[in-house]
Nucleic acid binder design. Structure first.
Length: 257
DNA sequence: CACCAGGTGGAAC
DNA sequence: GTTCCACATGGT
């Protein structure tokens, strides 16, 4: 079975885990990951994914077919969710970019998150890549505020300063336990439980993560009797979360409040 | 005009 | 320990 079949670009790049990809009129997706620009479509993805960087970025190593099979067997609802969301892969994004992006995500909507992240990249780098920790750390609050960050300006500055100074060592978190990594990230102002879980899921591939935003709180309350994600879905919790998030946002699975 | 958005920090119980 | 609220900004 060809694992390329398990990847749906549109769902994966537009399900709210990455903020730098946009759909072109010809159906291809263009964006930047770290400092690498990419244009990819369903017809060119085979060739693109032969490159080891993009192969890893799109998480082609993971057995999504088995994961989907397992989750869809749990309940009729999960079967519908898997069918609807099938093709989503959890990306392996750059940790610093993911950290800053999800700090920006708090009390915000996806459209505006994308706008702000792109504003940072366009204004702070020459090649539209994601700003380095030191570049961001050297910005003053007024400059950051001008990019549309709002009250999150001080959080972004705190994150960039702690990473640039070495106080927070992002690569070392690949080897840390989940709770260790979580606690480390939460030293940063603006990083709470939800944002830490997003970073660990979308940059560190930690499937123990189960980010609880407003949508997931509705889903868990209305469909799963407020049980815990890890109890329901075990080692596939993070993946299940993303399938549910995508389904909930695009259907009338749950009602507000 | 209100209300919401992939929440969090900080103060007040 | 928990509960409450301000926080910038743009979209609906």
């Amino acid at each position: 079975m060809d694992r390329l079949d398990s990847l749906d670009l549109a769902k994966t790049l537009d399900c709210g885990q990455a903020f730098r990809f946009n759909l072109a009129s010809n159906g291809s997706w263009s964006g930047v990951a770290g400092s690498r620009a990419l244009t990819i479509s369903e017809t060119t993805k085979t060739q693109i994914l032969s490159d080891s960087f993009w192969f890893h970025y799109f998480d082609m190593d993971f057995d999504y077919e088995s994961a989907c099979k397992e989750l869809s067997g749990l309940s009729p609802l999960m079967q519908r969710v898997v069918t609807y969301s099938q093709g989503i892969h959890i990306l392996n994004q750059d940790p610093f970019e993911t950290l800053i992006s999800f700090i920006i995500s708090q009390n915000n909507n996806i459209k505006r998150i994308k706008k702000i992240v792109n504003s940072l990249c366009q204004n702070l780098t020459e090649d539209n890549s994601f700003p380095s920790p030191s570049v961001l750390a050297s910005c003053d609050l007024q400059t950051l505020r001008s990019f549309g960050l709002g009250f999150r300006d001080k959080y972004v500055l705190d994150a960039a300063t702690k990473v640039a100074s070495g106080l927070i060592d992002l690569p070392s978190l690949f080897d840390a336990s989940f709770t260790e990594a979580c606690d480390c990230l939460k030293q940063i102002k603006g990083v709470g439980d939800k944002v830490a879980n997003c970073i660990l899921l979308f940059a560190y591939h930690r499937f123990e993560s189960f980010p609880m935003d407003v949508w997931m709180k509705r889903v868990m309350a209305q469909c799963f009797d407020n049980k815990k994600g890890t109890d329901l879905f075990g080692p596939l919790a993070g993946f299940a979360q993303q399938l549910l998030f995508f389904y909930a946002r695009n259907n009338e699975l749950v009602s507000p409040q």
